[in-house]
Nucleic acid binder design. Structure first.
Lengths: 339, 339
DNA sequence: CTGTTAGCGCATTCAG
DNA sequence: CTGAATGCGCTAACAG
């Protein structure tokens, strides 16, 4: 026998299809006794409720929320900040009894899934720019995180202000400052930004952070020398180490490293210590993000904590709420031994 | 205007709905010229193909594959082995143009999504046992990884043999052996297994590994003392360190540590070095899994490499292929400085 | 409280 | 190559 359908059980029980439907979806539409009878009968028949696919076609909503990652799943899953975000989203979605569909940011076609999902939570601007265009015109609900799309709700922190705060907390009047940036230009390896054209200046959190660093430096009369601003294509150990090595071997040697992620900062500290540079005496280091690992490492890192798990929860909640506002989440500057 | 449907564009173009459908799904059913004309017309109309939800209802398949994680998403994304597996699955699914729905292993109801997906790839026995029961009777395709379900295809490595091999590679006749196990009993903290009842003896990879260790020890005439077999609830630093500390402070002190994951082994090595125990002179350590981090750490770890990313790819391929066999993937014993 | 009806958007016959 | 018809499984009106 094949799987029972609403119609087949209705016939088997001698009632109308609407009654079965109501038994599952609108308990107030029939007597408790009848409902009870129907439900137990369904259980023995092996019918466990209306077909969700048909339900979705009919109602126009499925209870599935797609999370679009900026990069490949590959990268995202290995990045502690993204993982934390995903955890938050998953936790809140579970609370809402919704499901999570992971969608890679370098996919090409949104419409392979739009019809299945209730909407999109978009974590960081997708690497594939065509996706952004599609998200713009998408009929479904779209919420962005860590970037903005005109007319769409979003969840962010104030990256510029946070970066400014963190820089102000460590900078001194005579500092030689270097910045280890993340995805500032379109280059596949670590390298000084130099005069390369900046990348999607508008939406990137990195550029907002750079703005903040620079505002702080201006406030103190400091300038960022050419070759003291480095680009890193990804937030990982290798790229960061390469950039850190280069920057720390320059003359004059930097006295402060402003890093656009904690992973970069940790890697830079390792390099510095290997080079015999003492932290914080000879070099102060600041990170960004706030990840657990910095608490286990010594010296502990001064950093902006942005609580990505809560950001994930907030995003999922805002998505669900239907509110169309752009909210700014709080962050926290935490001073560590590195400054 | 609302979103165009197959019917509405058919009317607009003055052809039948079947023709539009064929233009998208069965190119051989109409002339190239007409198809071309229809496709471009659709593009300008803003119709980007048949509604996937309706298509799924009609055809009974959606192109979405659910991956059921054994634990919460929370735990899974932070575990390098699980992450690697997920990466492999994602990579292969992307190749197949399929989508990935993440499903937590402690959810209760499979049927909230069965109707949406083409089936399930189940990574490790779900923590919630009710899910297993549902998977058993599920009409859709189910493929298990790292455990088996009667009548279902699976992807595994030979854990028993791999554990045996790794133990044989390091054990010497007069060794004092300790085992740092993973999820051997149902306890929320690290503790000696003692006489606690073993947990789901059948399906767990941990028990297969323990079997392998024990076979190797028997072969060498060694026995595993009470209190030298420890349970860890999760593969993480804290639980592992606690177990390692306890075990290494016992008298006589173990000369070999057989660890059921690389994360546990790394943590144990850190503890040992802190205690002033030299590796491998005073203590040899063996891990299991094969993760990148062990290559950066010194001493490098002797371990069984099981290439979880390839396992993920293999799982996704086997799922797609429709073959119902249970395949055993190769593993590789790699000797490091820890033995 | 219950049954009837009309779609949700589509794919597949089948006759032309 | 085309068009009409049927139903995938369900829900929301509406009438009783």
């Amino acid at each position: 026998m094949s799987k029972p359908t609403l119609k087949s059980v209705a016939k088997a029980l001698g009632v109308s299809t609407a009654t079965i439907s109501n038994a599952f979806n609108r308990p107030d539409q029939l007597s408790v006794a009848l409902r009870e009878k129907i439900l137990t009968a369904c259980a023995t028949l092996g019918y466990d409720g209306p077909n969700k696919a048909a339900q979705s076609l009919r109602k126009g909503s499925s209870g599935i929320v797609a999370v679009i990652l900026s990069d490949s799943l590959e990268y995202m899953v290995s990045d502690p900040v993204a993982s934390q975000f995903l955890q938050g989203v998953a936790r809140e979605l579970e609370r809402q009894q919704k499901h999570l569909l992971l969608f890679s940011g370098n996919s090409t076609n949104l419409d392979t899934i739009t019809d299945f999902v209730d909407g999109f939570i978009c974590y960081g601007a997708p690497r594939n720019l065509a996706l952004i265009e599609q998200l713009r015109h998408c009929k479904k609900r779209v919420l962005t995180v860590d970037f903005d799309l005109p007319g769409r709700p979003s969840v962010n922190i104030d990256n510029e202000q946070a970066a400014y705060d963190s820089a102000m907390a460590v900078l001194k009047p005579d500092d030689i400052v270097a910045v280890l940036g993340l995805r500032l230009i379109d280059a596949p390896d670590s390298q000084p930004v130099g005069s390369a054209p900046m990348w999607d200046n508008q939406s990137s959190v990195s550029h907002r952070r750079l703005d903040g660093y620079q505002r702080a430096m201006e406030a103190l009369g400091l300038t960022l020398g050419t070759d003291y601003l480095w680009h890193t294509p990804e937030s990982n150990q290798e790229y960061a180490a390469k950039a850190a090595k280069a920057v720390l071997n320059q003359v004059p040697q930097p006295s402060v490293l402003l890093c656009m992620s904690d992973l970069i900062a940790l890697s830079a500290m390792r390099v510095a210590l290997q080079l015999g540079i003492r932290i914080p005496e000879q070099l102060r280091v600041v990170g960004f993000d706030g990840i657990e690992e910095t608490l286990r490492y010594h010296p502990t890192l001064t950093s902006v904590w942005q609580f990505s798990d809560r950001k994930g929860e907030a995003a999922a909640r805002a998505f669900q709420s239907g509110v169309d506002s752009c909210q700014l989440l709080p962050y926290e500057l935490r001073l560590g031994e590195s400054s």
